[in-house]
Measured scan of single mutants.
Amino acid sequence: MQRVNMIMAESPGLITICLLGYLLSAECTVFLDHENANKILNRPKRYNSGKLEEFVQGNLERECMEEKCSFEEAREVFENTERTTEFWKQYVDGDQCESNPCLNGGSCKDDINSYECWCPFGFEGKNCELDVTCNIKNGRCEQFCKNSADNKVVCSCTEGYRLAENQKSCEPAVPFPCGRVSVSQTSKLTRAETVFPDVDYVNSTEAETILDNITQSTQSFNDFTRVVGGEDAKPGQFPWQVVLNGKVDAFCGGSIVNEKWIVTAAHCVETGVKITVVAGEHNIEETEHTEQKRNVIRIIPHHNYNAAINKYNHDIALLELDEPLVLNSYVTPICIADKEYTNIFLKFGSGYVSGWGRVFHKGRSALVLQYLRVPLVDRATCLRSTKFTIYNNMFCAGFHEGGRDSCQGDSGGPHVTEVEGTSFLTGIISWGEECAMKGKYGIYTKVSRYVNWIKEKTKLT
């Protein structure tokens, strides 16, 4: 034993070699072989497995989906700052455009905790909710729209109204504003409101030439003092309507412009014939205590009207009353817009006519005020429907199939267009061939041609 100890002390290297040989010859039971080890760690190889990531292109799944990435790591994937920024906006807080917040056709661009709407022409605001041009839906104005110097929408209202708090709607500024039905039992019968379409306001006024200088022999019209197929109006439903009495009662109609003036057809009036105007009328054979009678003290036909040349060209006249009318729910003026808007309103496509005229061709006159909704007829169809001249200051309205029309005794009465609950004068009943005849239409004086003249002559002093 002493000898062994001496050998170990003198030859430590020998001992180490012996131990190493023993270990190498022993069977290893701690580690699995290569094949079995792979069965336990069965993990798919990654895209760049075996390579240094710093030297390969980034992978979106590896960089940002398996674990949260930084902007720089995302930049490695896209290799483009702009594309990385677009991805980053949604990656950080989701897609803010998912709810489609942009209105009126706006395009949404996502941002971090926010979004941006790219608005089409005519709109602005956070969600493109603000109209900035009158060309689109009248700028959301209830009545009139004008573009300011910086191309912003400025709404306005006709006389007797003021802008509401929203700067879009119009509200009454006087007790009985024009064009409004205020009798409670008839307010439910107000005709369907007309909503502004998209309009090209630059070209809204037709490029028409008034044929002022045409000389033409007097034409022989049949029954051209021209509501057939209409309905009984309720008291106060058309408070701007008046009836004219002269040699015979209810020979023509008219509309209240203001307390002192009536507008009617020029062919209705004769110099030297006494005319009485009755406002607030409903049943011409009954006294309903809503009527107001006034005498006409002055007749002003349009300066281009000449019955000797043509009885229905420039067929418009103004009547001055001896005493002002007292405005109330049964006696209310009709609204008159400017030339541009009167023309736009007419193009809405349908209007209402009213009167006490004959209820059928050569038949009896109506006792109760009649009204009828009539569609506008395109000019080409209008011209083809008659052998008589249709001037540019006239328009056609009615039904091709016949059966409904204005008729004798309705002449001078109103053709009105309702705009968001307020009625505007767009025409004056003038003439036609018979009444409600198939293929024939009622012919009306186009008020847009005469609004400046009306307003100039009827100013209240």
Rank of each mutant, 00 (worst) to 15 (best):
Val326Met: 14
Ala308Leu: 12
Thr276Ala: 07
Lys51Asn: 14
Val77Trp: 06
Pro177Trp: 01
Lys311Phe: 05
Asn42Gly: 04
Glu10Gly: 13
Val154Gln: 14
Thr190Tyr: 09
Ser114Glu: 14
Val326Phe: 07
Gly355His: 13
Phe345Gln: 02
Ile15Cys: 11
Gly94Lys: 11
Trp240Ser: 00
Thr276Arg: 09
Ser169Arg: 10
Val199Gln: 13
Leu41Ile: 06
Ala192Asn: 15
Asp198Pro: 11
Pro414Cys: 11
Glu54Asn: 00
Asp223Tyr: 07
Asp315Asn: 09
Gly349Val: 02
His289Ile: 10
Lys293Gly: 04
Gln90Ile: 11
Arg62Thr: 04
Ile256Phe: 00
Ile336Leu: 11
Cys407Gly: 04
Cys134Thr: 03
Asn222Ala: 15
Ser99Phe: 10
Asp200Glu: 09
Glu208Arg: 11
Asp150Thr: 12
Gly442Lys: 08
Glu193Cys: 06
Glu61Pro: 02
Arg226Thr: 15
Arg449Ala: 15
Pro235Lys: 09
Glu129Lys: 04
Gln185Lys: 13
Asn283Leu: 10
Gly439Gln: 08
Ser411Asn: 13
Glu124Met: 12
Ser184Trp: 08
Ser204Trp: 09
Lys347Leu: 07
Arg384Ser: 10
Glu281Cys: 11
Tyr305His: 06
Leu460Thr: 08
Glu129Leu: 03
Phe224Pro: 15
Cys396Gln: 01
Lys459Asn: 15
Asn222Glu: 10
Arg384Met: 11
Asp150Pro: 09
Asn36Arg: 11
Gln57Met: 06
Ala317Asp: 00
Asn80Ile: 04
Ser148Pro: 08
Val263Met: 03
Phe221Asn: 10
Asp33Tyr: 05
Pro101Lys: 05
Ser11Thr: 13
Lys457Gln: 10
Gly21Glu: 07
Gly357Arg: 15
Ser448Gly: 08
Ala337Lys: 00
Pro414Asn: 15
Ser255Lys: 00
Ala380Gln: 10
Val195Trp: 11
Cys18Tyr: 08
Pro177Leu: 00
Glu340Arg: 09
Val451Gly: 04
Cys155Met: 01
Thr417Asn: 08
Gly58Ser: 13
Leu163Glu: 03
Gly355Pro: 05
Arg75Ile: 06
Gly413Tyr: 15
Gly355Phe: 14
Ile454His: 01
Phe251His: 12
Pro324Thr: 04
Val374Glu: 02
Leu24His: 05
Lys339Cys: 09
Ser255Val: 14
Gly412Cys: 06
Asp33Ser: 13
Val447Pro: 03
Thr215Pro: 09
Ile299Ala: 08
Ala380Ser: 10
Lys146Glu: 14
Gly363Met: 08
Glu72Met: 06
Thr264Pro: 00
Pro301His: 08
Ser25Arg: 08
Cys134Gln: 03
Val278Asp: 03
Cys18Lys: 03
Thr158Glu: 06
Leu383Ile: 11
Glu340Gln: 11
Ala164Val: 07
Leu346Asp: 02
Val359Asn: 12
Glu66Phe: 04
